[in-house]
């Protein structure tokens, strides 16, 4: 199931994305937005955040700097 969202995109970003489409690097704007969202979500996963915090706590407690 797909959802439709309405969002404002800064002109410069939109223009850069359009250029990529025109040059054939992406099929359309939607593909770029999906890919960008996918990458953002991949790099901001809960499990990663939690893992970094636990590492940090361990370093805080026992690290040798």
């Amino acid at each position: 199931m797909n959802n439709t969202v309405k969002a404002e995109i800064p002109y410069q970003l939109w223009q850069q994305a359009q250029t990529l489409v025109e040059q054939g690097w992406a099929r359309n704007l939607q593909e770029i937005i999906n890919e960008a969202l996918h990458r953002y979500l991949e790099s901001h996963q809960d499990i990663l955040t939690e893992s970094f915090i636990q590492d940090d706590v361990e370093w805080g407690l026992h690290g040798d700097d």
């Binding site: 970094f52 915090i53 590492d55 940090d56 706590v57 370093w59 805080g60 407690l61 690290g63 700097d65």
Partner: peptide, 14 residues
């Protein structure tokens, strides 16, 4: 190496 607020606070005890 990357450390954050929590680690830095806890390190303050060490």
């Amino acid at each position: 190496k990357a450390h954050g607020t929590l680690g830095l606070l806890i390190r303050a005890v060490r």
